[in-house]
Simulated scan of single mutants.
Amino acid sequence: TKGEFTVTGIYPREMTEEQLIETAALAESYSEHPIAAAVKAACRKELSMERISDTEEIPGHGILARIDGKRVAAGNMKLMAAENISCEENCGMGTVIYIAVDGKYAGSIVIADRIKPEAGEAILSLKESGVRKTVMLTGDKENVGISVAGELGIDRVYANLLPGDKVTQVEVLLDELSEGEKLAFVGDGINDAPVLSRADIGIAMGSMGSDAAIEAADVVLMDDNPMKIASVIRIARRTLKIVKQNIIFALGVKGLILILGAAGIANMWAAVFADVGVAVIAILNSMRVLQSK
């Protein structure tokens, strides 16, 4: 449902805004996360990879790196707590990246994500396709998650989740399913990989999705248009309908010819039709899927 991330606020404490952005961009330079891309896009300086070493990405927390010989931590409050770094909480509307250098808090950056224009219509089309409940699992702050869910018409939201928390919540949602219902999860980041593999159906956004998410998913969408999720459901239902038609038709004709043959009524040509003819008709019937809009 989210579109592009953009830096909306820079709050330096121990360095200038330009230095804070540059430090964060260097720390995020090896990350493929959309938030990292937003930070790098906000940096006006050319980044030298030679200044960076010992980069470690901690899922659900942030990044640790050594820049110009200094140990830099860039991530959320959980990372700051894990590194025993005292810092003031930034209550800005959006995702906040806290930056610390050599164990000392340096400042924070607020990043906001624009909701994709088609996201609201995508949620509506999912409900029209028979989806009973939509749930958002996000690592963002609760106020951000509630705001997005309210705007899009999402039924339930769980915020401030680590990758492990998402798996735990999916387990709860799986227990809530009625007989015959399935749970589908849509994600694109490395943090979503465990949930994609645990859900009944894992759908990865292939354009911006990480390799881990794509590998763990059952279905990969080749672009990031959420409207395609409802299309996937419609295609699957139409395909399954045609498969059932072919099975019933093939078994019915073969069974009929078998009975007629046992009674001495069917000849060799009837047997050929039951074999080759039925296969050709089933193939032609299956080709109707190609005509689906």
Rank of each mutant, 00 (worst) to 15 (best):
P194E: 05
A37I: 04
K241S: 13
S286V: 05
E179N: 12
G62R: 01
V272H: 06
I35L: 15
A112G: 13
A213M: 08
T55F: 00
D188L: 03
K40M: 10
N191R: 01
L162H: 02
G189N: 05
K40G: 00
G252H: 09
L258I: 11
A217C: 10
A27C: 01
T55M: 11
V96T: 10
V96W: 02
Y158K: 09
L162F: 05
F273P: 10
Y158P: 03
V232M: 13
K254A: 09
E57H: 06
S129A: 15
K127E: 09
D140T: 08
E151Y: 10
S108M: 02
G202L: 09
W269Q: 11
I146W: 09
E83L: 00
V232E: 12
L20A: 03
R114A: 14
T168P: 02
L240G: 10
D275L: 05
G164L: 01
L258G: 13
D165L: 07
I265E: 04
Q169A: 07
A279V: 14
G9E: 15
L20F: 00
A236H: 08
A159D: 08
G202W: 09
V96K: 00
M227Q: 14
E88V: 14
G120V: 03
K45D: 03
R71D: 14
D192W: 03
K254Q: 12
Y11R: 14
T23A: 11
K78S: 02
S31K: 05
A270N: 15
K70M: 09
E179H: 11
I247E: 11
T23R: 00
R132W: 05
G189V: 03
T134R: 12
M80G: 05
T134A: 08
P194Q: 06
A100I: 04
K40I: 05
S31E: 08
V72Y: 01
A184Y: 04
A24T: 07
N191P: 03
A41V: 04
G62Q: 00
E22K: 14
S29K: 13
G187H: 04
D113H: 03
Q169V: 14
K141F: 02
K182Q: 11
F5Q: 02
A122H: 10
A65Y: 01
G75Q: 02
K45E: 09
L240R: 10
T16P: 00
G252S: 12
S129M: 15
E89G: 03
V280F: 10
E128C: 08
R71T: 12
L221T: 09
I154G: 08
I283A: 15
E171M: 12
P34L: 06
E88P: 04
M49H: 12
E50K: 15
P163M: 06
G261Q: 07
K78D: 02
A216W: 04
I242E: 04
L161H: 07
I111L: 15
K182V: 13
D211A: 14
S108Q: 02
A82V: 00
N267G: 15
A217K: 13
N143Q: 11
